[in-house]
Design a protein around this nucleic acid. Structure first.
Lengths: 200, 200
DNA sequence: AAGGTTACTTACATAGATGTCAATAGCAAA
DNA sequence: TTTGCTATTGACATCTATGTAAGTAACCTT
């Protein structure tokens, strides 16, 4: 009766599902990431997703992990490039803002928190933690990026969720938030370099 | 058969419902603000809420309006007090952060956006717009608070949603976000006062 | 080729949220 | 008191998301 599809490896299935979930998240928002919608997009049934992810919140958690890791990898690489004199602070700012905005990390994090599914946020925080730790290894003594990271992530999240509406209401350009963040990060990095020059 | 409760005026009913909805929002999050939960808390039925608010999204929109107006009124008063030499910039920062955090405005705004119910966000943006317009009337020439407002609201929203987790992961105090915002706002206000002193 | 593992499906079950509608009854006005 | 308005309720209907269970079939191993 049932015309079973070609069998995919669990790994392939999970990857396809997460890609579809990510698309839905970015296109239509968190509410659109349902078992039915995701499974439909990859040509399977919702029971299939339950088979692979155990539960709906299992899928959410896996999506969080997937997004957080790929984004943090991207940002980490950019920071290291900046250390080596390639690129500008603006690149970092843009990347962080895009991660929370266009890449859907903001919507995801927000979704997790609001749905009370707080432990599903762990992968995101974990990935940020890991990124910062890694970056700290290359930092000058007595100076960390922690406060800059906090400030940048906070502004990027807020901007992703409400930036467009706020800017519109205030008669400002859409990228005013980015510009402010860039100014702050640049100033902070400059003071850092000066401190390092003085110390060295 | 049915033992009808004492009849309240539509105004009383709406007020009681909105107060209950606000409590639920702050205590348990947006997902808890359902017709059943809200009506149960004020001792009515969910059909009663539908009678007064028309629909579930009608209730949400009314809640948004209610929160936005009360919060903006509070902040506006504080800004004016600051202008008159009473209080510190930190008061403004605290108020904005609390509005998005403890007062539930952040969760509400986020909820609106994520549920695709974007027009329900209008009252919030409208209230902010109104507040800023009102404050602008008392501002020195050629200088507005718009960028400061954007920056403050953005950071307050981001901090409300992810501040605790981020600070924890980065080994920072919970109020680091506020401290950063305070530093920025203070600096901006100082440059404003200097400019005003030079011009005057 | 035979058999076992398991990806996959269909069908069913459940729970919660939203919404409709007719009926009841509190309250004010006549 | 009587009458009209409407706040309020209970019962019912629907829709969506999630989850369960058992059967089917694809693929790998032997």
């Amino acid at each position: 009766m049932s015309i079973a599809k070609r069998r995919l490896s669990p790994e392939q299935s999970r990857t396809a599902a997460l890609a579809a979930a990510r698309e839905l998240l970015i296109e239509t928002g968190p509410q659109a990431v349902t078992l039915k919608a995701v499974s439909g997009r990859i040509g399977r049934t919702h029971a299939n997703l339950l088979h692979h992810f155990g539960s709906a919140s299992g899928l959410q958690k896996a999506l969080a992990e997937y997004l957080a890791q790929s984004i943090c990898q991207m940002i980490g690489a950019a920071v290291i490039r900046l250390r080596n004199g390639e690129g500008t602070p603006r690149d970092i700012v843009d990347m962080a803002f895009d991660a929370f905005d266009r890449e859907g990390a903001g919507a995801l994090a927000c979704w997790m928190l609001l749905s009370g599914n707080e432990d599903a946020l762990d992968p995101i925080v974990e990935a940020i933690h890991q990124l910062v730790d890694e970056l700290a290894e290359h930092a000058p003594e007595g100076r960390t990026l922690h406060e800059d990271t906090l400030s940048l992530c906070t502004m990027a999240l807020g901007d992703a969720l409400m930036g467009a509406q706020l800017a519109g209401a205030l008669g400002l350009d859409r990228d005013t938030g980015r510009a402010i963040a860039e100014k702050q990060l640049t100033a902070s990095l400059l003071s850092w370099q000066e401190a390092a020059a003085t110390a060295g």
